[in-house]
Amino acid sequence: MKKITTGMAVAAGLLALLAYFRGGISLVLEGLQGGGLMLLKVTPLLLIAFLVAGLIQVMVSHEFIKKWLGKEAGIKGVFLGALAGAMVPGGPYVSYPIAASFFISGAEIGTVMAFIAAKNVWSFTRLPMEFALLGAHVTVTRFLVTLVFPIIVGILANLLLAGTEEKIRNQVKELAGGGHND
């Protein structure tokens, strides 16, 4: 956790330097202000996102996770994860807490990867905007071309990452801290 904080602070520092060379101190302040404003704007969403994440962790029983999203679920888990990802609205500050709660509760890594990939390329709530700004031709082409990606990503993750899955899950648990009380 400390390493991640340090890494992000260093990255923010480097970017601030880059912004300084591009537009002086005012651009650096603009960046800070942009981040702060964004945080203020999304705070209500953030609160509900963590509420949903908490509800998922408590409500979704171990049996459910095992049967539908875990190892025994296999390809079914990948499909369900993708479907859930497509339905999640809002930015990454909403989808990642929810992805983490599934992962912490025992969902297989392919399920979680499919969830994120579907949030990225299926996202039902983003489609109307894509349609409006990029037009029907681009949107339909883009959607069809990427349609199978979340499923492929999920299957690949399950195949390739079975050995490291627990190590990855432990880090997510560690970051969530007191979030899991069982």
Binding site: T5, A12, L32, G35, S101, G178
Partner: peptide
Amino acid sequence: SGFGMMKGVIPLLLFAFILSGM
């Protein structure tokens, strides 16, 4: 559980928003 999770990631999340703005 949701609140605990949020408390855990808040410091990092603050950095995330700053980084995002930068």
